[in-house]
Write a protein that binds this DNA or RNA. Structure first.
Length: 772
DNA sequence: TTAGGGTTAG
């Protein structure tokens, strides 16, 4: 066979017509004519089929094509791909329709040859040959049968296994262009994951672009980068995706917005949204929902987006409302959440949407957080009426409604009701119940629950008809009036249990238990050790709680040691750990240490927050020296600079006490301070930005020097009096330190805006003070 | 293709 195929190029290029050929053209011609049902011969010019002898003498084009194709096929099967290509090329130079060549080629033979090449590891040669075939206008993929395609795919996979992703992608680009279905070679998602793992967004885009459903793949890549917190790469994919299509794809936009949220860059999500609007593109509901969701912590922005959506005529769906409810929940806006809940109930009544379990659960959480457990129960009834069964999240929110209100018994009842309803508890849910015990200071009860759960787990009611709600809901179906299921009617005897669901505590569980240690430092420490034994690592919260336990036990040393151990354990103290440590110091009169911690956190660029400032400002219930006043005023000013508003009333009271000290001229006894709540007890002179405090802060921060002046403009007579007293006390303190002051003090008394006093009134008040 | 629950400082 092989000898028969030894044909020189020149002999191949000689036209076969009309000379005989070495491969028995007669039998070949007969074979080809009978084997070509798809390409019927041109209709015979005369009635009756042509005679075989006529065909041999004047072979029609198909016959010549068949001859060459068959010859080429046999050469290919013998591993002579170059010869195959040469024949194909020489013939096709005269053929007007190259694609017809395929119809005559013996794909089985060609495939056998190609498989042999692939088996010898000559992948490149095969791909180059396929490239040449493509250049001739022949679709390369149609030359390979299933088996050859599998061999090709297997060779390509070897590149992936060898980590040669770039070569693989390049190959896939070529093969896709040659008509191969490359997604069958290797699962596309697997390749994309490798690109993401290598942090190569460009390669991922290049590979995804091969496929007609590229936008979906772009979404996957963006999401995968998001999971790795790699927003930069995700944005590269997003930008590249824009160039691959006519305009931004809504799927891709939604993905990048979600990813911005996942990576904590919500401002970027807003920019992407603005870009869409700038291009006059109306985002779809998914884009709007994702944008609102990512910015859910900023209620005003979320509402702005919601309004914008309505302006553009994009109808809100149930997810939109759920997100709005979540935003209200985060902002603690029960009032607004109630309005939205009513609105969504109304829309649902028109049939435009159906409230789902998330709508109900989120609303229950809003009420739970606000300790409005009655309202939470009302929503639970609403959901049962609507035929929606509570799930573990709903039950958890209900339990937390009672937990936050300090109602342990009710929390336990709901927990048991949940078990009876056939809902399997998870650790988060159990943690809420433990937390309920802690809020109500039932510490022993928390430990009893914990030990019993660890020992026995929970009964599994799945698959044994335990879900009472499902049963009742099914019974209610078809009733004309709504039959609501109250939370009291469960009969425990209806339910049978089987098997056991184990309880697996988490770090959060132990943290709650540590809180349940009250002031027992050693117990809390033992729990930390127990955590480690279970392979759980104490986190920021664990350490902060331990510090707090020490603080409450009046053990400042222990608190400082715990603070240090936190660092030693590799956990950098955050603002909460610092604030807790500061609190431990403040409550135990270690003020110097408290202020040192404050200085330290600022040195480490940990921004104090409102709680930190308030903890520090309340460190003193009276001020002793000028230095102490200065320290507090500095914190006050720092706080204002950071954008926090302070409890001016409290600070003012302390300052006034201090200032009055100059008149009383005696050591002040302990001052009994009352802490006014936000809603009551505010003096009339209180202004949003206290001019008085600002003036005193500025005055007291610098030493009294020649030419010092006091500007009382804008202050009431009471305030002006305090300022003057402050200056006098400062002078007194300075004098007591042995520094006599002989310079004059200039006082400006012009009445500014908003003081409500005349200049003479202020002056009168001052003279009274100064003459004392 | 979205969206929901737990523990820390006041």
């Amino acid at each position: 066979m092989r000898e028969q195929l030894l044909i020189t190029a020149s002999s191949i290029l000689l036209p076969p017509n009309p000379s005989p050929n070495p491969l028995n053209p007669k039998s070949y011609a007969l074979k080809r004519f009978t084997l070509l049902p798809k390409k019927p011969c041109p209709p015979p010019p005369s009635p009756g089929p042509p005679l075989l002898s006529d065909v041999s003498r004047h072979p029609p084009p198909d016959l010549r094509l068949g001859y060459y194709a068959d010859l080429a096929s046999k050469l290919a099967s013998a591993g002579r791909i170059d010869d195959f290509l040469m024949i194909a090329e020489s013939f096709l130079a005269t053929e007007t329709d190259p694609s017809r060549f395929i119809d005559f080629v013996n794909v089985e033979l060609v495939s056998a040859g190609i498989s042999r090449f692939l088996g010898d590891g000559k992948l490149r040669t095969v791909v180059e040959a396929l490239g040449k075939i493509e250049e001739m206008g022949i679709r390369p993929s149609s030359l390979l049968d299933g088996s050859a395609k599998q061999s090709l795919a297997s060779e390509c996979r070897k590149l992936v296994d060898g980590g040669r992703i770039e070569e693989f992608v390049e190959l896939m680009e070529s093969l896709a262009g040659y008509g191969f279905s490359v997604k069958e070679f290797v699962e596309p998602f697997a390749i994309l994951k490798i690109c993401v793992k290598k942090r190569d967004p460009h390669m991922a885009v290049r590979y995804a672009s091969i496929f007609p459903h590229a936008p979906i793949l772009f979404c996957s890549i963006i999401q995968e980068f998001g999971k790795k917190q790699d927003l930069v790469s995700a944005l590269i994919v997003f930008e590249a995706s824009k160039w691959k299509s006519d305009g931004p794809n809504m799927y891709v936009c939604r993905s990048i917005i979600d990813t911005c949220g996942l990576c904590g860059d919500f401002l970027r999500s807003r920019c992407i949204f603005e870009e869409l609007l700038a291009q006059n593109i109306t985002p779809n509901i998914y884009v709007f929902n994702s944008l609102m969701n990512v910015n859910g912590h900023d209620l005003s922005y979320t509402l702005h987006v919601y309004n914008h959506m309505q302006t553009l005529g994009v109808a809100a769906d149930v997810a939109s409302y759920n997100i709005l409810l979540k935003a209200c929940c985060l902002a603690g806006r029960v009032d607004l959440a109630q309005d939205i809940y009513k609105e969504v109930q109304h829309v649902a009544s028109t049939g435009a949407l159906k409230m789902d379990i998330i709508t109900y659960s989120t609303t229950i959480k809003v009420f739970a957080d606000a300790k409005m457990w009655q309202m939470a129960l009302k929503v639970k009834d609403d959901m049962l009426c609507a035929g929606v069964n509570p799930n573990i999240v709903t039950w958890s929110s209900l339990i937390s409604a009672f937990a936050n209100a300090g109602l342990v018994e009710q929390a336990v009842n709901v927990f048991e009701e949940m078990l009876l309803a056939g809902c399997e508890p998870n650790t988060q849910c159990c943690n809420i119940l433990l937390y309920a015990c802690v809020v109500a200071c039932q510490y022993d009860r928390a430990f009893r629950f914990f030990r019993s759960w660890v020992k026995s787990g929970f009964p599994n009611t799945r698959g044994c008809g335990g879900n009472i709600y499902a049963q009742l809901s099914a019974k209610n179906t078809g009733n004309s009036g709504a039959t609501c299921v109250s939370h009291h009617i469960i009969d425990p005897h209806q339910v049978s249990f089987s098997k056991v669901v184990p309880f697996r505590p988490t770090v959060a569980t132990y943290n709650i238990l540590m809180k349940a240690c009250g002031t027992d430092f050693w117990r809390a420490k033992a729990l930390m050790d127990e955590m480690r034994m279970l392979g759980l690592y104490p986190n920021h919260r664990s350490w902060s709680i331990l510090i707090d336990v020490c603080g409450k036990a009046h053990n400042v040393q222990g608190a400082m040691q715990a603070f240090q151990n936190m660092r030693n354990a590799g956990i950098t103290p955050d603002v909460i750990a610092y604030t807790t440590a500061i609190k431990a110091c403040v409550e135990n009169k270690s003020l110097k240490m408290a202020f040192l911690l404050f200085e330290e956190m600022k040195r480490y660029l940990i921004q104090p927050n409102l709680v930190t400032y308030n903890t520090l400002l309340r460190a003193r219930s009276r001020y002793g020296s000028l230095q102490e006043v200065r320290q507090c005023l500095a914190i006050y000013q720092d706080m204002r600079k950071a954008g926090y508003s302070s409890n001016d009333y409290f600070l003012k009271e302390l300052l006034e006490e201090w200032c009055e000290g100059v008149i009383k001229n005696s050591e002040l006894g302990p001052v009994q301070m009352t802490y006014p709540s936000c809603s009551s007890g505010k003096p009339k002179t209180d202004k949003p930005q206290s001019l008085l405090l600002e003036k005193i802060a500025v005055l007291l921060q610098k030493d009294f020097v020649k030419g010092s002046s006091v500007d009382l403009r804008g202050l009431s007579k009471v305030e002006a009096r305090i300022v003057v007293l402050a200056v006098l006390r400062m002078i007194k303190e300075t004098y007591n330190q042995g520094k006599p002051i002989e310079d004059d003090l200039i006082i400006f008394t012009g009445v500014g805006t908003g003081s409500g006093c005349s200049e003479s009134e202020v002056q009168g008040a001052l003279i009274k003070v100064l003459l004392r």
